[in-house]
Amino acid sequence: SSFPTSHYHGITVIINLAQITDEMKRILELLSIDLTRISKFTEKQDFYMVRASENVRHIFSELYTVQNHIKSSYIRIKILELLLILSETDFDADKKKCVYFSKEQRDCVLKIHDFVVEHITEHYTIEELAEQFKISPTAMKNCFRGIYGVPIYTYCRTYRLQIAEKLLREGQLSVAEIAAKIGYINPNKFTSAFRTEYKMTPTEYKKNV
Results as ranks from 00 to 15, higher is better:
Asp92Trp: 05
Val56Lys: 04
Arg57Cys: 10
Pro4Phe: 08
Tyr205Gln: 03
Lys134His: 14
Lys134Arg: 12
Glu62Asn: 12
Lys95Asn: 05
Phe144Ser: 05
Ala193Ser: 12
Glu54Met: 07
Pro202Thr: 09
Arg157Asn: 07
Cys156Phe: 04
Ser136Ile: 02
Ser39Thr: 14
Lys111Met: 14
Thr196Phe: 04
Lys141Ala: 14
Ser174His: 11
Cys108Phe: 03
Gly10Val: 06
Glu29His: 11
His119Pro: 01
Thr89Pro: 06
Asp22Val: 14
Phe47Cys: 05
Lys206Ala: 14
Lys134Ala: 10
Ser102Phe: 05
Lys189Tyr: 06
Leu28Lys: 02
Ser72Asn: 13
Leu80Gly: 04
Thr154His: 04
Phe190Leu: 06
Gly183Ser: 07
Asn208Glu: 09
Cys108Glu: 00
Asp46Pro: 06
Val50Lys: 08
Lys181His: 14
Asp90Asn: 15
His113Lys: 11
Pro202Ser: 08
Pro202Phe: 04
Tyr74His: 11
Ile182Leu: 05
Leu110Arg: 12
Leu63Ser: 09
Arg37Trp: 06
Thr42Lys: 05
Arg157Gly: 01
Asn142Ala: 07
Phe3Asp: 08
Thr65Arg: 12
His113Leu: 10
Ile135Ala: 01
Leu35Cys: 02
Ser39Leu: 06
Asp46Gln: 08
Val56Asn: 00
Ser32Cys: 03
Val56Ala: 00
Ser1Lys: 04
Gln172Leu: 13
Ile77Ala: 10
Asn188Tyr: 11
Glu81Arg: 13
Leu30Ile: 06
Lys103Tyr: 09
Thr121Trp: 09
Ala52Tyr: 09
Lys181Ala: 15
Val175Ile: 15
His69Phe: 15
Asn16Met: 09
Tyr48Trp: 10
Leu80Trp: 04
His123Phe: 10
Gly10Ile: 07
Ala193Leu: 03
Tyr8Ile: 11
Tyr48Leu: 09
Gln132Thr: 11
His69Leu: 13
Cys143Asp: 04
Ser6Arg: 10
Ser53Val: 01
Tyr74Pro: 00
Leu173Ala: 11
Gln19His: 06
Glu88Gly: 13
Thr121Met: 09
Pro202Trp: 02
Lys111Leu: 14
Glu88Cys: 13
Lys96Asn: 04
Lys181Gly: 07
Ser39Phe: 11
Glu43Met: 10
Asn55Gln: 12
Asn208Val: 08
Ile178Lys: 00
Lys40Ile: 08
Ser87Glu: 08
Ile33Gly: 00
Tyr198Lys: 01
Arg195Lys: 13
Ile15Tyr: 00
Leu129Gly: 06
Phe133Gly: 10
Ala193Cys: 03
Ile77Val: 14
Ser102Asp: 05
Leu83Gln: 01
Ser53Trp: 01
Ser53Asp: 01
Phe194Cys: 01
Lys44Met: 13
Val66Ser: 06
Ile126Gly: 07
Ala179Pro: 02
Ser39Gln: 10
Arg76Leu: 13
Lys44Asn: 08
Ile112Lys: 00
Thr5Cys: 12
Phe194Ile: 01
Asp46Val: 13
Pro187Phe: 03
Ser53Gly: 02
Arg160Tyr: 09
Val109Ser: 00
Leu82Trp: 00
Glu62Lys: 11
Pro202Leu: 05
Thr5Ile: 12
Ala180Val: 03
Thr21Gln: 06
Glu23Leu: 10
Gly171Trp: 07
His7Glu: 15
Glu104Gln: 12
Ala179Ile: 08
Gln45Glu: 15
Met24Gly: 00
Tyr205Ile: 02
Gly183Phe: 06
